[in-house]
Amino acid sequence: MENFTIKGSTYIPTVNFDAATGILEMSGESYHEYTIEFFQPILEWLRKYLEEPNRNITFNFKMTYFNTSSSRRFLEIFDMLEDYKKHKNGTVLVRWHYKEGDVDMLESGEEYAEDVDIPFEFIPYS
């Protein structure tokens, strides 16, 4: 399967999904006006990628800001990963990177971790 990439800008995130290594990374900010349209190809790629069982996936979450509409799309991604772990014998780890002291971003990650049954690792950076 081809890799999936989006070059970020001020209001759209950088996306780097590496099909071979299973390292999926999103970074930057997300407050696109039409997040449903923006996330559509991301979710589409992921859906196809998760059709094959037994993959080992690391999701590197490095977002620094996202709006509520994006937060819903991220929940969809985590739901898909949870499903993959449960039903496709997948191994999934979310590595949630946040700037040291950014209590809001840490809390956002903790709330996802409470809501989905996949392991989260919280990694502060300075």
Binding site: E33, T35, I36, T68, S69, S71, R72, L75, E114, D115
Partner: peptide, 26 residues
């Protein structure tokens, strides 16, 4: 507020409404 936001965020997307319906809670 946190619990209410988590609850609403899980609800299905409303038709013809692009947002997540959690802006006021946010």
């Amino acid at each position: 507020l946190k619990e209410f936001q988590k609850q609403v965020r899980k609800e299905p997307q409303r038709p013809d409404r692009p947002g997540a319906n959690i802006g006021l809670i946010e």
